[in-house]
Structure formats: structure tokens, C-alpha cells
């Protein structure tokens, strides 16, 4: 049986790569590799996962230099040789080993106006939204984000400008701006404008290229730019 030579980032701050030999198997995911190391070679290795089926968004890390969800990434798909390089996600502070601190990432979703606020109370009937309405179709294209942080880790603008809200937060806001039930459209457009907002995106599309859910935050951000421009021209901002 062949073996994988796995290089894993250890510790936070000034850590280093540590090497492990892991048996290579068929249909093996990156998460399987990390779990093998933790259970058989070094129980002190820290990493994060929950659902193992691509729903929770907690297992993302940098695999051979690219941010990926590890539970749904097969070793065969990303590894031409037997070498595997695993590091914590870029653009996030490291807690320990492969575990990142996601606090800023989720704080930015709040800052970008990511919390829904409708006009209906629990006494009202459920809002009826036509599935083929343009707003609903725009929301459909962007709504399946699992908050894994892959887009944020792949974004050069976040790297250059740490206060930039990032693709996930802006994508979330776009889904609310296009939501017919939303009552805070202008507040959201104000929140995503400015130097930390949608106008800082260079449309390099790394987020879209890497999103494991095949969403296009770039498309959502372009939509926000258009909406903000229209609002500015109408004097609403």
C-alpha cells in the first residue's frame, strides 16, 4: 500500500510544518487523512469538523496551497504525487494547528447587515414569493452559503485590506437586498458601501473559483455595486 507524505502545520503563530506518513486508500478524503493522524499518530493535533458531509462548513483548510472543504475533497482529486501539504486557512488568525479563529469572519457578516428583518409578525400569514420572480431567482443563486470561509481565505483583497468585509458577508447581504420581505434595504446598501465594502472588490473571482458550493460571490458583489450606484444616483444613500 502506498503512503502519503503529509506535511501539517503545527501550533499557532511561529509554528512549523510537521511530517507524517499516512496509508493511502481508495476514496480517501483530506478529512480522513487528518483524522488518521489525530487518532493514530499524534492525538494532540487540533482540527475542526462536525457533519463530514459538506453541510456545516467547519472543516475547511488550505490543501496544497488552496482553500478547500476537506470532508468532500478526495485525495486523488488534489494530489498528483504522494505529497500533501495541510495548513490553516489563510487570512484567519490561527488558534492552534489547523484550527482558525472565525470570529472576525462572522462579525463582518453582522457588520454588512447580514441579519434578516421583515415586517411580518408571527401572527401574520407566511409571505408568498413567486419562485420565478427575479428577486427570488437572484436569492436562489446565492443562498446556499455554509460559512466555511473558503472564499474569505482565497480573497486577495482581504489579504491586502484586512477590514474589507469579504465575499461571504457581501454575498449574504445581497441575498437580503433581493429579498422581497426585507425592510432594511437602504441600511444594508449603506453598510456595504465605503472602503471596506463592495467597491473594494477587484472581481478577480478567486472566491467564485474556490467556493465548494459553486456559488458566485463575485456576481453577488457586482449586483451590490449596481444597487448601491442606483441608490446613490437617486439620492437615497
Amino acid at each position: 500500500m502506498s503512503k502519503l507524505k503529509v506535511s501539517v502545520w503545527r501550533s499557532a503563530g511561529s509554528g512549523a510544518q510537521e511530517y507524517f506518513d499516512v496509508p493511502r486508500k481508495e476514496n480517501q478524503t483530506i478529512l480522513d487523512v487528518v483524522t488518521y493522524i489525530q487518532r493514530n499518530l499524534d492525538p494532540t493535533l487540533s482540527y475542526r469538523y462536525a457533519c463530514r458531509v459538506g453541510m456545516c462548513g467547519s472543516c475547511a483548510m488550505s490543501v496544497n496551497g488552496k482553500a478547500r472543504w476537506t470532508c468532500r475533497t478526495h485525495v486523488d482529486k488534489v494530489c498528483d504525487s504522494d505529497a500533501l501539504d495541510l495548513r490553516p486557512l489563510e487570512n484567519f488568525p490561527v488558534v492552534k494547528d489547523l484550527v482558525c479563529d472565525m470570529q472576525t469572519f462572522f462579525d463582518k457578516q453582522k457588520k454588512a447587515g447580514g441579519a434578516f428583518l421583515g415586517a411580518h409578525t408571527r401572527e401574520d400569514s407566511v409571505a408568498l414569493i413567486k419562485p420565478d420572480s427575479s428577486g427570488r431567482m437572484a436569492v436562489d443563486e446565492a443562498i446556499e452559503c455554509i460559512g466555511c470561509g473558503v472564499c474569505y481565505a482565497s480573497c486577495d483583497v482581504v489579504k491586502w485590506k484586512p477590514d474589507y468585509l469579504g465575499p461571504a458577508a457581501l454575498n449574504r447581504t445581497w441575498t437580503l437586498v433581493k429579498d422581497e420581505r426585507d425592510t432594511r434595504r437602504l441600511d444594508r446598501l449603506r453598510a456595504v458601501s465605503g472602503d471596506a465594502g463592495c467597491h473594494s472588490c477587484h472581481s478577480q473571482m478567486s472566491c467564485t473559483q474556490r467556493c465548494p458550493k459553486l456559488l458566485s460571490p463575485t456576481h453577488s458583489i457586482s449586483g451590490l455595486k449596481r444597487e448601491v450606484s442606483r441608490a446613490a444616483l437617486k439620492g437615497e444613500l
Binding site: 446598501l189 458601501s193 448601491v228 446613490a232 444616483l233
Partner: peptide
């Protein structure tokens, strides 16, 4: 920078 200023710079 204000949202309005930012939007007009982008448009310009």
C-alpha cells in the same frame, strides 16, 4: 468615506 462618496467614485 461616506457610502455616497464611495459609490460616486466607483461610478466615475
Amino acid at each position: 468615506m461616506s457610502p455616497r462618496h464611495s459609490a460616486f467614485l466607483w461610478l466615475a
